[in-house]
């Protein structure tokens, strides 16, 4: 029997070939997972995260899933992040830093190219990007690349893009709820109508230290007590 024939047999498993992957990765927030098809972030697809401003916890929302994915042997690729992903915080969130890949492209075109390559390569479990461009053709390419590479593509975008059509499999809109929790509305999901919002306490994901330990004397609390 020749090597070629041998390789064509169905019962021969070959290293380097991807096994069929689960269709979703749990977000780590059960209230959210119940609303998401497959019970989590869609695998091999784009997820668009629309946010009104920074600092409301868009990254924290992903941390349980990224921590989980960092035990995979594939990269978690951050393409042109707006700030430095802070290593101590990632460690606190349970992310294995040795799986974190940062790409610093020079030009915007290179950035989109890097996002597409990373999604398509099959070397990445997740790809995070902050595209400012509004181009349906580009988004379509990225969605196809995510399918080809079986990657979770997270695109963080400004809220104003919510009205634009998008080929992303999942679109969620974030806001801050009055109680300080993160409000997540689902604008688009596979096999379902828009849903939400759900209110998530993302601070709990850090365990020991709660983020919203706001002082009760809110009004004049900027003057710190001397310790």
């Amino acid at each position: 029997m020749s090597l070629d024939h041998l390789l064509q047999r169905a019962d021969v498993w070959r290293g380097g070939r991807l096994t069929a992957a689960a269709s979703a990765v749990p977000s780590g927030y059960s209230e959210l997972d119940t609303l998401l098809p497959g019970g989590g972030w869609p695998q091999g697809a784009l997820t668009e995260i629309l946010m009104p401003r920074q600092g409301i916890g868009a990254l924290r929302l992903l941390m349980p899933a990224l921590a989980q994915l960092s035990h995979d042997d594939r990269w978690i690729c951050w393409v042109a992040p707006p700030h430095i992903p802070y290593a101590p915080a990632l460690v606190s969130a349970g992310v294995d830093l040795s799986r974190v890949l940062l790409v610093h492209p020079g030009a915007r075109q290179d950035g989109l190219w890097a996002v597409e390559q990373s999604l398509r390569s099959g070397n990445c479990s997740a790809v995070l990007a902050w595209p400012t461009l509004d181009d349906a053709g580009v988004m379509r390419r990225l969605q196809l690349a995510a399918e080809a590479g079986d990657a979770l593509g997270f695109l963080f975008r400004a809220e104003r893009f919510a009205k634009r059509p998008s080929p992303a499999a999942l679109r969620i809109q974030l806001d801050t709820h009055t109680d300080g929790n993160l409000s997540v509305s689902i604008l688009k999901r596979r096999g379902g109508w828009a849903a939400g919002p759900v209110h998530l306490d993302t601070s709990l994901q850090y365990g020991a230290l709660a983020l919203h330990s706001r002082a009760t004397t809110a009004a004049g609390c900027f003057q710190p007590r001397q310790q």
Binding site: L3, W75, P85, L101, L102, V103, H104, Q117, S121, N123
Partner: peptide, 29 residues
């Protein structure tokens, strides 16, 4: 060449176009 070609190594691919310094990891100190 008898089988499916290996997926392109992403790191090599990114570095070839963007330069060696454009692709890094991150560490806590």
């Amino acid at each position: 060449s008898s089988g499916k070609p290996e997926r392109l190594n992403l790191l090599d691919h990114l570095r070839a176009r963007l330069g060696d310094g454009a692709v890094t990891g991150i560490s806590a100190v």
